[in-house]
């Protein structure tokens, strides 16, 4: 980068230092301007992202190794216990699934009767979270599939229990996602009990969401399940988001103070599912 010769202990001045720093600062400011205003720099970002990818793999390797070690040294007894537990779980899930098939058929029939558009089944794909920390100022995570696998910006991410977040930047082999608990994230939800629509906003705390736009007389109570309403367009409807865990109504305030706990274990998940919904499914 800097062509330099001579001995470093030579105390002479470094040539053209001031000019260089001003030029680099101007380039930085231009880059930031274009990055903020348009998406011209996505290609640059992706190219550098590919260069950083091996490093992320290296950082991720010890964590994976540790998990592998833990798995391979689990005792036979524990494994047998786990197999038993999983079998029981599978039986339960299967039983539920049978009922679900019947319900789905019934639902389709009823919808046909009502002449409503049938609900599109979403296509999902499992992605693994790479043990890589992203931006410290935001609740982000990095997943191990990218635009090569059809991931797109704004795509919804869920885990087994509920909504996790959405993709904000896609690299070739990785993608960055923002969690629903990020302060900049807001999610259109509805109360499962009565269909009351509102917005769930991240608080910056991993286990709390705020519902700031509910009036004092809104019909909401502790224990209500919030599901995605599908109104924002990014998330398909009907995925569980959070459970209301605190409702404070203050007569002097116009809005009630409502908080909810995310259904997904945002800081514990290791595997997530990406959802391709609606038109994207038809394309594939």
């Amino acid at each position: 980068m800097v062509a330099s010769r001579g001995n470093n202990s030579n105390p002479a001045r470094i040539p053209a230092l001031g000019i260089r720093v001003i030029v680099l600062m101007l380039i930085s400011i231009l880059l930031m301007y274009f990055d903020q205003r348009q998406n011209h720099l996505d290609a640059v970002r992706k190219a550098i992202g590919v260069a950083v990818y091996p490093l992320q793999l290296v950082v991720d390797a010890p964590v994976r190794f540790w998990e592998w070690l833990g798995e391979s040294t689990t005792s036979r007894n524990e494994l047998q216990l786990e197999v038993g537990r999983l079998k029981a779980e599978r039986l339960l899930t299967n039983a539920r699934l049978q009922r679900l098939t019947a319900l789905e058929a019934e639902n389709a029939r009823l919808r046909a009767l009502l002449d409503a558009r049938a609900k599109v089944r979403d296509q999902v794909r499992v992605a693994e979270i790479m043990a890589v920390d992203a931006n410290p100022y935001e609740h982000n995570l990095v997943i191990d599939i990218g635009s090569r696998d059809g991931v797109y910006d704004g795509q919804a991410i869920v885990d087994a229990d509920g909504v996790v977040g959405q993709v904000i930047a896609t690299g070739l082999m990785t993608a960055q996602a923002v969690l629903i608990s990020d302060t900049d994230h807001a999610l259109p939800v509805e109360v499962n009990r009565n269909g009351l629509r509102t917005i769930a906003v991240g608080t910056g705390e991993i286990d709390r969401l705020d519902l700031p736009f509910l009036p004092n007389n809104a019909d909401i109570q502790t224990g209500d399940l919030l599901v995605t309403s599908g109104l924002g367009g990014a998330f398909p409807a009907g995925y569980p988001v959070a459970v209301v865990d605190g409702v404070t109504r203050m007569p002097q305030e116009p809005f009630a103070d409502v908080t909810a706990k995310p259904a997904a274990a945002l800081d514990q998940v290791r595997e997530v599912m990406l959802i391709w919904s609606g038109p994207a499914v038809e394309e594939q």
């Binding site: 930085s28 231009l30 930031m32 720099l41 950083v52 890589v132 992203a134 931006n135 935001e138 930047a169």
Partner: peptide, 10 residues
């Protein structure tokens, strides 16, 4: 900036 996903140049 790329690995953090912050504004490019920040």
């Amino acid at each position: 900036d790329v690995s953090y996903g912050t504004l490019l140049g920040q």
